[in-house]
Simulated scan of single mutants.
Amino acid sequence: MTSTGSPPKDHRTRDRVIRALLFVAVGVSLTVTLWGMDLSRLGAALKAADWRWLLLAALANTASQTTRAMGWNAMLTAPRIRFPLLVRIEFAAQAAAAVSPEGMGEFVRIGYLLREGVTRTVTVTLMLVRKYFSSLGLVPFLVFVWRPGSGVPGWAVTVAWLYAAVLAVETVLVVRVSRAPAAPAREGRLRKVVFDARTALGPVRRPRVFAEVGAAAVATRALDFIAAAAVARSLGLPLSVAVLVVVLLSVEVSNVLPTLPGQLGTFEAAVLGATAGTLGQAEGLAFALVLHAQQVLPQIPLGMIAMADTSILRNRSKRNSS
Results as ranks from 00 to 15, higher is better:
residue 73 N to M: 06
residue 218 V to C: 07
residue 217 A to H: 06
residue 86 L to A: 08
residue 264 L to A: 06
residue 299 Q to I: 00
residue 133 F to G: 01
residue 11 H to P: 05
residue 103 G to T: 11
residue 295 Q to P: 11
residue 28 V to T: 15
residue 153 P to I: 04
residue 103 G to A: 07
residue 220 T to L: 13
residue 68 R to G: 05
residue 320 N to R: 15
residue 101 P to I: 04
residue 92 A to N: 13
residue 298 P to W: 05
residue 296 V to Q: 01
residue 260 L to F: 03
residue 319 R to L: 14
residue 76 L to C: 12
residue 209 V to L: 09
residue 297 L to G: 02
residue 231 V to P: 01
residue 210 F to E: 14
residue 195 F to I: 07
residue 84 P to L: 04
residue 179 R to D: 11
residue 203 P to M: 09
residue 54 L to F: 04
residue 192 K to H: 15
residue 78 A to G: 15
residue 273 G to S: 07
residue 37 M to P: 02
residue 50 D to E: 15
residue 36 G to M: 10
residue 303 G to H: 09
residue 79 P to F: 04
residue 156 A to F: 06
residue 12 R to E: 13
residue 245 V to C: 04
residue 98 A to G: 08
residue 202 G to Q: 14
residue 314 R to C: 10
residue 295 Q to T: 04
residue 127 M to H: 08
residue 313 L to S: 13
residue 141 F to K: 03
residue 17 V to K: 06
residue 151 G to A: 08
residue 74 A to R: 09
residue 236 G to N: 07
residue 35 W to K: 12
residue 127 M to A: 13
residue 189 R to N: 09
residue 241 V to L: 13
residue 226 I to P: 05
residue 15 D to M: 06
residue 197 A to Q: 10
residue 249 L to A: 03
residue 195 F to E: 12
residue 167 L to K: 05
residue 113 L to N: 06
residue 279 L to V: 13
residue 182 A to S: 14
residue 103 G to V: 06
residue 213 V to A: 06
residue 134 S to P: 01
residue 272 L to I: 03
residue 154 G to M: 09
residue 272 L to V: 00
residue 301 P to R: 10
residue 130 R to K: 05
residue 102 E to A: 11
residue 2 T to R: 12
